[in-house]
Design a protein around this nucleic acid. Sequence first.
DNA 1: GGCTGCTATTTGTCTGAGTATTGGGGCGCG
DNA 2: CGCGCCCCAATACTCAGACAAATAGCAGCC
Lengths: 237, 237
Amino acid sequence: MTAPLATRLKRLHDTVADRLGVAIVTGVHQPGELLENEVQASERLSVSRSAYREAVRMLAAKGLVESRPKTGTRVNPRRRWNLLDPQVLGWMFEGEVSPQFLRDLFELRLVVEPAAAELAAQRRDAADVARMDAALDEMARHGLGKPEGQAADQRFHDAILQATRNETLLTLTSTIAAAVSWTTRYKQRNGQLGRDPLPDHQAVGRAIAGGDAAGARAAMTELVRLALADTELSPAD
Amino acid sequence: MTAPLATRLKRLHDTVADRLGVAIVTGVHQPGELLENEVQASERLSVSRSAYREAVRMLAAKGLVESRPKTGTRVNPRRRWNLLDPQVLGWMFEGEVSPQFLRDLFELRLVVEPAAAELAAQRRDAADVARMDAALDEMARHGLGKPEGQAADQRFHDAILQATRNETLLTLTSTIAAAVSWTTRYKQRNGQLGRDPLPDHQAVGRAIAGGDAAGARAAMTELVRLALADTELSPAD
DNA sequence: GGCTGCTATTTGTCTGAGTATTGGGGCGCG
DNA sequence: CGCGCCCCAATACTCAGACAAATAGCAGCC
């Protein structure tokens, strides 16, 4: 017993936060549920109370839990979770992700990315275009099967968000990235390739580089729709 | 000296986090800047090192800072801040908000809310419509000058996001709310009324209740555009 | 000039004590 | 019986001080 909580690769409080965070977002601890009190919990994880408390503070900062004297630390209703927090999103994907949540994520992408593409077409400068082209080149060279190609894919989407010149949209990078990476992961797991996504990416790139706002929006909509179809999620409506 | 950090209304670590958070997002501590070391900082604020550390953990969880041994705690580049975190957003509005950021916020609203209205029109049920109508009634009764009216305004926008049946969109509630409340605050401060926003809200409500997706999108676009115009922010392009 | 090992600084972790808050139960009173 | 008040115990909160671990920067060596 007193399983030694994984060999230390990072700070202890981060490790504990990860562990608790995953347990919460994957449903091991349901909303409304009360966590063990600090003393028991820290002893069970064989960490000091301070380390455990700092972990809980992090979860609280992300809206996952709330602590009060006498009552203890309670898991918040999902509604209060910061689902767009990169770390929370990461914890989600540690377990099985519900199809409903994936559809929500793609729907958000379908709302945000076409609009972002449109704005990017209006505001991009030479540096943006260079970033996009570099990413597209690397995608073509490596293919989407390899990690390099996937990284390039994410850089492409990120470059577009950057080109919008909108900080709040840029914050959604991690959210988009989660959906993007899930698509390729899914396709690899299931071996089916679907249509080659590279031409669609290039079409988006051309429209943005050419300043064609409407075209960029349309091309991006098409791209996301295609990705959604590949995941075999039934359309939302 | 050793000014006693406000009479305790909430937890000490929350108070410290608020104070540091505001100082960072309002630019008192620039990105890249190094914070005092824990001992000095905690002494200056007259709190224990543990309380200070828990506060820093919260800021780190929101992407504002990063701590490393020997180097210290450094303010992250804005790019890594979770700008959509409700608390971070709240801290922003403690100081002067840059026009650029406000435009970004409205632009995000312009991306999200029309799409949300469209989805809401497709998926709303009786309860959603009831919520919207109740909010509209209260807005009409109190007017947007009074706190009750403003609260109702936010409930209206929230009801729409709820009706989308999309958790990730719902997470943006606080972001939308920030932009909404800023509009009314601005209008009160400057005394100018602009067009009465109530009819536009009612138009959105009617379209959603009637299941008119395209109409809902159009009406919402109009509503947000109007709000943007009232704030006298120059249009983004 | 570059590598290597030392050292000082800073965060990280632990422990144990005392404080503040508050939900709930008991008790009195109407 | 019902209602309000007070007390109590459980819990998180705060504090203080010590030691451990990591690491940037430097000195010294090859």
